[in-house]
Simulated assay, not measured.
Amino acid sequence: MQAVKIVGVGQIEVKDVPIPVPGDNEVLVKLKASALCRSDLHLYHGESVFEDSDIDGSTITPGHEPCGVVEKVGKNVQSVKPGDRVAVYLAYGCSSCSYCLAGDTMLCDKFRCMGFDLDGGHADYLVTPEYNCLPLPDEMTFLQGAVSTDVGGTLYTACRELGVDGTQTVVIFGIGPMGCGGVLMAKGYGAKVIAIDVDPQRLKLAQELGADIVINPKETDSVAEIKRLTKGMGADVAIDCTGSQIAQNNALDCVKPRGKVGFIGESKSCTINPSDQFIRKLIDLKGLWYFNRADWNEITDFIIRNNVAIEKISSHTFPIEEAAEAFKLFDSRVTQKVVFLWD
């Protein structure tokens, strides 16, 4: 089978490797779609994603947003069978701690991530524990399923955790793939959505996805404009998908007292004014990262029931043989999601 390997900084090779064999409680999945993520680019640039990992990234097949068809199952597998359509949950844990039992495997002390600590989905086949197989509804394509995991699941959960509903104004900072997911999910919840980005093409896409208002902070003071649009009150909810200190501060500044702010974009540090931006406004600030495994059916039901056009998050598709070109294009930041597809 073919598998993508990052063999050096900015260097991709598609190698022939043996098809893996599922062990006890494991499943062999024939991949049909696997989405690239910005975190894949950390490996592409020779950077770590999880600082405590001691795995040599050049030996690992990346990809943590895959979908496919169960090809074979190992001993003791009971919940899936050959022919089942599945998405794959990225988090691997101990399976017995309180976090794993509650479905928050990414919080387990023994957390490992598919595509970083062990082989992921940018390959013809993938072996994964039975527990990590998520049923893919017949109404969803494999591409839709792939982008419904990391992006769809994370942003659905973000909107739910922040209490988004049809009475609210929600601001999304950064209209990359995550921000696009934020626009789609917030509109699915019925909210009025304001999209913020410095790229005119991304703002145009935000409008196509349903954003009610777009603001380019290079041209307009975004916080002042949000206050004007909300009659001086401020937004109900703001979600930062950039990891930029400027956007994080603007998210805190643009919400009204008792507003809610979510941080999704990864960053190492951020300086804020806790008294004025946070304490005296009684703001709720939440860290938002991936979704609880038990929520998968709820997430896919929401997407199907509300006709969420999750596939529009993907702007380009490639066969696995063209992985080097796909990574290079995705790294240029002129795309939204890039997805590998198999016939």
Rank of each mutant, 00 (worst) to 15 (best):
I283D: 01
D343H: 02
L252G: 06
D124K: 14
V223N: 10
I215G: 00
A158L: 08
V171M: 05
K75P: 03
D54G: 09
S98Q: 13
M140W: 02
C37W: 03
D56P: 10
V49E: 11
I310F: 03
G145V: 06
G179H: 08
G153I: 03
G210M: 10
S58G: 08
N292Y: 06
T230D: 06
N249K: 08
R112Q: 14
G115M: 07
S58D: 11
G265C: 09
G83L: 13
V198H: 06
V170M: 11
V4D: 04
D199P: 00
S315I: 05
P137I: 14
V21P: 04
F318S: 00
T169P: 09
P129T: 09
G174R: 06
G57T: 05
P129D: 15
M114R: 14
R333K: 08
A123E: 10
A35L: 02
Q248L: 11
F111I: 08
D276M: 12
T154F: 13
C108G: 04
G166Q: 10
E13K: 10
D331P: 05
R202N: 00
D165M: 12
P82F: 11
C254Y: 08
D221I: 08
E65A: 14
A247W: 03
P257A: 15
M1P: 05
Q78M: 13
E51S: 12
V338E: 09
R333H: 14
A3C: 13
I320D: 01
A238Q: 04
Q2F: 09
E130I: 12
S39G: 09
R202A: 01
P135D: 06
V198K: 09
K75Q: 15
P257Y: 14
H122F: 15
S314D: 02
V255H: 07
V80N: 10
L341G: 01
W296H: 11
D16V: 14
I6F: 15
G46L: 13
F111Y: 10
L90Y: 15
S275H: 15
P135Q: 14
E322F: 11
V77R: 02
P82R: 10
D199G: 04
T335W: 10
L209F: 04
R38W: 13
S95T: 15
Q201I: 12
V70A: 08
T105D: 13
I320Q: 00
T149M: 07
T105C: 14
A309P: 14
L136S: 01
C241L: 02
E298I: 08
L118Y: 15
K30T: 12
A123L: 11
L203Y: 04
L143Y: 00
F111P: 00
I299D: 05
V14W: 06
D16P: 02
V261N: 06
P20R: 03
A123Q: 12
F142R: 01
I303R: 03
K227S: 13
I310V: 07
S332C: 07
Q2W: 04
N250M: 07
Q78R: 15
G259R: 05
